[in-house]
Design a protein around this nucleic acid. Structure first.
Length: 843
DNA sequence: GTCTCTAAGC
């Protein structure tokens, strides 16, 4: 039962515990800087953290697939899926222009290259193209030559010419196999260019003409669906293929797994395909694993990614540059930058040299986790290694500067990019618009937008959604409306991300009612809201106490559907009413003051109805809403109700809130294991929300246990050393609980007769991560806390976000008789486990 | 003949 016993926070133990941990950390760092160990650090508590499978420790792990490997999806896969930390559902279209067919001999004739050159010169003139094709007709040697031409046309984005060329060739070819080759080739080309509808048309014609019923054509179309993010279509086509009697091959399976990654499917789905593939006798190859890794990367499943990587190596499949780049993406996008650097070192050691994709990935990761200096030094390193920056690298870099408001530098990158021969594209402009917009530089935004048009860079959906959000957040409703009108006029098709972003902006401004209207509108238009959409709305409730509508706000509410500013006189209760309509059932808690709960429950119920799985962000939003509840009873009621939807997740939150620690802790640990799979910002948001709620309702000991568990799992980077406590990523509840834990640690150092460092400091940063109180409140909260304990910490004159005290003064304070009592935290509500009436529901 | 890597919202 060791695992179910909560860690005891006596005055002595924390120091011992953390002393051990420090040693482990040092060991961990040594292995990082040394050789190629990719394994994450050993779990601090063997029962608490599930380590990614190291080789060959995996041998013992059971699985339905192969007893030698850790299962891709653990026995908790359903929860893992529910709890997916996926960051984005948006499909990112990537065009692979100029892509070389690697490996394999040259099969086309010299004549084909000549034909290609002549064709390119005729771009846009169908009749000229026809005459070139006719003139080469007798000289081109079958499908090899035509396939070369088709692929090269694809590399030059000449999809229309590729189709013409295909039709020309296929009509003059009598052999079915050769016709089939042409068809799969052109389907692949069209797929790569995102012309999935055209690819489908070619496929259908090919099938009806009798030369398309091949595994190649099917695989090519599955891949085309994949590249457009159409996972469901890919899977459907796969089923059709099997029904029509064709056997999928390894490539088909690989394409299908790829479709899961690009279509944002759960890892479970990809894992099922993998299992299906194995049971049909196919051994996975490098591309299979690379595609599976991409699913993890897209889903924010870092630990699963590293398990897969180890599994792949164990199977004797050598990783290549794609493997490493994808693994790096999983690490970087999850904020695990120490691992990312380790991976980069390992690939270099294996002589797989980082390329521009590698650098772009890691640079972006650094920037995302606030390591700007490292990001910039990587840029220098890249240049030093003679790796030229490509379009993506440049766009990446300028986006980093723009998002930080460093516009001079951003514009310098633009200049350099243009000097290198890359013209500004829509991504460049979108990044600049977003950056300037977020800094409130609306004059620049307007200027850039008109320059974009002058330079004939057509705005895309993201351009408009960026502009509308920027204007909404800045309160420039007239401009927002104009942008929306223009967006409609351009005939662009909105998607769920477009609406979600606007809904989020409205929620952040307190326009919950308007956002509900938009939610309704998008559904009517056949665009299903997703978990992100709902999370924004739940977050709005979590903050509705501070986001009340003023009369001015009400007048300013924009009715985006009509594309016009609409004056509304509806009173505030209508906001509530809109959401009450979302609630389908009757709840027994309809007392006064409980409207917020009903709304949150209503939104949650609606999600359930629509089969939108709540994720860890939803959970955090709910916890923040709990912290906003006016009483303990209300918060516990809300969690109690939510247990009907998900007993594990809300059972833990409810149990901890109630003080049922002994029974709940073991479930809490397995919940924390699930959270550990998420990227670091998602994980810290969860811990922040949970501890805030517990602290808010006086469950301070529980809050501290959670916060220490989070620290053990390295949720917040480099939280503490003996001389410094860094709270800047924490919410105020988490930070206060952490201050107590750290001081207890300091106490044990003093108690054991060790000397303290000369200067101790506590960093609060700006407390931007607090969900309960406003910005900068973290510092105030910590100041109050330190003052109330009579501690010698004072605000540093050089840095107002830092509290300092000389070590000897802290030591003297620790020796005062009252201090230990002040440091130990207790819960306001703690239930003896023996009391029969107070046992929690069975979890 | 078909398959794998980097750039957007909570």
């Amino acid at each position: 039962m060791a695992s179910s016993t909560p860690p005891t926070l006596t005055t002595a133990k924390p120091y011992q515990n953390h002393h051990i941990q420090n040693i482990q950390n040092q060991h961990h760092r040594r292995t990082h800087n040394g050789h190629n160990s990719l394994h994450p650090p050993p779990p601090r508590n063997p029962t608490a953290a599930k380590p990614p499978a190291p080789i060959p420790a995996t041998v013992a792990a059971g699985t339905h697939r192969n007893p030698n490997f850790t299962p891709l999806s653990s026995s908790k896969s359903e929860l893992a899926a529910d709890f997916s930390g996926r960051r984005s559902t948006r499909f990112v279209s990537k065009m692979h222009f100029g892509r070389q067919k690697s490996g394999g001999s040259i099969r086309h004739s010299i004549v084909a290259e000549d034909a290609l050159q002549q064709l390119i010169r005729c771009s846009g003139d169908d009749r000229l193209i026809e005459s070139v094709l006719l003139s080469f007709q007798s000289k081109l040697c079958g499908s090899d030559d035509y396939n070369f031409v088709l692929r090269e046309l694809g590399n030059r984005n000449e999809w229309s010419m590729a189709i013409q060329c295909f039709e020309f060739a296929v009509n003059r070819e009598r052999r079915r196999t050769e016709q089939g080759k042409l068809a799969s080739s052109v389907i692949s080309v069209l797929g790569r260019l995102g012309k999935v509808e055209l690819a489908k048309k070619v496929f259908e014609t090919a099938v009806s003409e009798g030369y398309g019923n091949t595994v190649y054509a099917y695989s090519a179309l599955i891949s085309a669906y994949a590249k457009s993010g159409l996972c469901d279509d890919a899977i459907k086509l796969f089923e059709t293929m099997k029904l029509s009697g064709l056997k999928p091959n390894l490539v088909t399976y690989n394409a299908l797994i790829d479709a899961c990654g690009k279509g944002g499917a759960d890892f479970k789905r990809a894992s099922d395909i993998f299992d299906d593939m194995l049971s049909n006798g196919f051994q996975p190859d490098r591309i299979t694993y690379n595609s599976l890794l991409a699913v993890c990367s897209g889903g924010g499943l870092w630990e699963t990614a590293i398990n897969l990587f180890n599994e792949m190596c164990y199977r004797g499949i050598e990783p290549d540059i794609y493997t490493y780049n994808t693994l790096l993406d999983a690490a970087s996008s999850g904020g695990h930058m120490d691992y990312a650097f380790q991976i980069m070192a390992e690939m270099t050691a294996k002589n797989i040299m980082p390329n521009e994709v590698t650098y772009s990935t890691v640079i972006r990761g650094c920037a995302k986790s606030g390591r700007l200096d490292q990001a910039l030094s990587l840029v220098s390193e890249m240049k030093y290694a003679n790796i030229s920056l490509d379009r993506v690298s440049y766009n990446n870099l300028l986006a980093i500067y723009a998002s930080l408001g460093r516009f001079d530098e951003a514009l310098n990158v633009v200049k350099e990019m243009e000097n290198t021969g890359f013209r500004k594209d829509v991504v460049t402009y979108n990044a600049l618009l977003d950056g300037f917009g977020k800094q409130g530089r609306y004059d620049k935004v307007k200027e850039l937008f008109s320059r974009m048009k002058n330079e004939r860079v057509p705005p895309n959906l993201l351009t408009y959604s960026t502009l509308i959000s920027v204007y909404l957040k800045g309160g420039l409703y007239q401009e927002a409306t104009e942008m929306y009108k223009e967006f409609k006029h351009e005939g662009l098709k909105a998607d769920v991300v477009f609406y979600s972003e606007i809904i989020d902006s409205l929620c952040k401004k307190g326009f919950v009612e308007s956002s509900a209207l938009l939610l309704d509108e998008m559904t009517k238009k056949g665009i299903q809201p997703n978990v992100v959409t709902y999370n924004s709305i739940i977050n709005a409730f979590g903050h509705s106490g501070e986001a009340r509508l003023t009369n001015d706000n009400k007048r300013e509410i924009v009715c985006l559907e009509n594309g016009e500013k609409k004056v509304t006189n509806r009173d505030e209760d209508r906001i509530i009413n809109v959401f009450e309509q979302l609630a389908s059932g009757n709840l027994n808690i309809g007392e006064k003051g409980r409207k917020e709960i009903i709304c949150v429950l209503g939104v949650f119920r609606k999600m359930h109805e629509l089969e939108i799985k709540p994720n860890v962000v939803t959970f955090s939003a709910i916890l923040n809403a709990c912290s906003r509840c006016s009483s303990f009873e209300e918060a516990s009621l809300l969690l109690e109700e939510l247990r009907l939807f998900d007993n594990q997740v809300y059972g833990v939150a409810h149990g901890l809130l109630m003080g049922y620690r002994e029974n709940v802790w073991v479930h809490a640990l397995s919940l924390f294991d699930e959270v550990k799979r998420m990227d670091s910002s998602t994980a810290s948001a969860f811990y922040n929300a949970l501890t805030d709620m517990l602290w808010h309702f006086g469950q301070k000991r529980g809050a501290q246990m959670v916060v220490l568990e989070g620290k053990r799992r390295q949720v917040w980077e480099n939280t503490w050393s003996d001389s410094c406590l860094d709270l800047h990523l924490m919410s105020s509840g988490a930070a206060r609980a952490m201050v107590h834990a750290w001081l207890l640690n300091i106490y044990s150092i003093v108690y054991e007769g060790h000397e303290l460092p000369g200067l101790l400091s506590i960093l609060t940063g700006w407390g931007k991560h607090s969900k309960v109180v406003g910005d900068c409140a973290l510092k105030r909260a910590i100041e109050t806390l330190l003052g109330s304990m009579g501690s010698p910490f004072r605000v540093a004159t050089s840095n107002i976000g830092r509290f300092i005290s000389p070590g000897p003064m802290v030591a003297a304070w620790m020796r005062e008789s009252d201090t230990p009592k002040l440091l130990v935290l207790e819960d306001d509500r703690a239930y003896p486990q023996t009391h029969p009436n107070l046992q929690p529901l069975v979890l």
